[in-house]
Amino acid sequence: MAKVAFLLANGFEDSEMKNPYDAVKEAGHEAVIVGLEKGAECKGKKGTVSYTADVGASEVKAADFDAVVIPGGAAPEALRVNDAVVRFVKEVNEDGKLIAGICHGPQVMISADILKGKEATSFIGIRDDVKLAGADYRDEEVVVSENLVTSRTPKDEPAFIREILAKLS
């Protein structure tokens, strides 16, 4: 069983959190919601789901987790400017563990400076940012590059979830 951190803040894309989170739990893994602070309520931008942070970003260590999932929407913008979030993602990457981001999720990877020399995809609106961060951008439903898994939009969720579960097994 893997322990998976879901990085979350207000304004995340509802299905990009709910579907991978539910799939990870259904596969028997532990899913932990890491927010900007413990107990913070994180609401989806469409209002269909909300979650409470199990732990704050300043309290987590890479050694305690096997993977990180970063849903898209507006949340990655709030997450990427938090030093504790960026430190955590850098440490998880240094350990070679899975980091999966969909839609705007790769914004956190950009701020953690972990895309250089990797292949990646994202929501088209941040495509140039992904390229400028040193990634070889691919317009594909899911891109797996070493320990990173990236996808573009909610329609890519089945492929995104499939690759996350494959990496965890």
Rank of each mutant, 00 (worst) to 15 (best):
R138N: 11
G72T: 07
S169K: 15
A133C: 11
P106N: 10
A135Y: 00
G35N: 05
V60E: 04
A166R: 15
G117A: 11
V85H: 09
E146K: 15
A74I: 11
D139N: 14
V34F: 04
L115S: 08
A27N: 12
K43N: 11
D136Y: 10
A133D: 06
S145G: 10
V55F: 04
C42M: 13
K97V: 02
E94F: 09
E16W: 06
R80W: 06
R87Q: 13
K118A: 05
A53S: 12
V149M: 03
V4G: 05
A53N: 09
V60R: 01
K61Y: 03
K38F: 00
E157M: 14
I161D: 01
Y51G: 00
R87P: 03
G134D: 08
E59R: 06
A159D: 14
A84W: 01
E30G: 01
P20Q: 08
V85T: 14
V142H: 02
V130C: 02
S50T: 11
E16N: 13
A75W: 11
Q107E: 13
R80D: 08
K38A: 11
K167I: 02
S15N: 15
A63S: 14
T48C: 07
L8M: 12
K118M: 12
E13A: 08
H29G: 04
V49W: 09
H104W: 05
A74Y: 14
A84M: 03
A2N: 11
V55K: 01
G47T: 08
K25T: 07
I33H: 02
V81N: 09
A67D: 02
Y137K: 09
D64A: 11
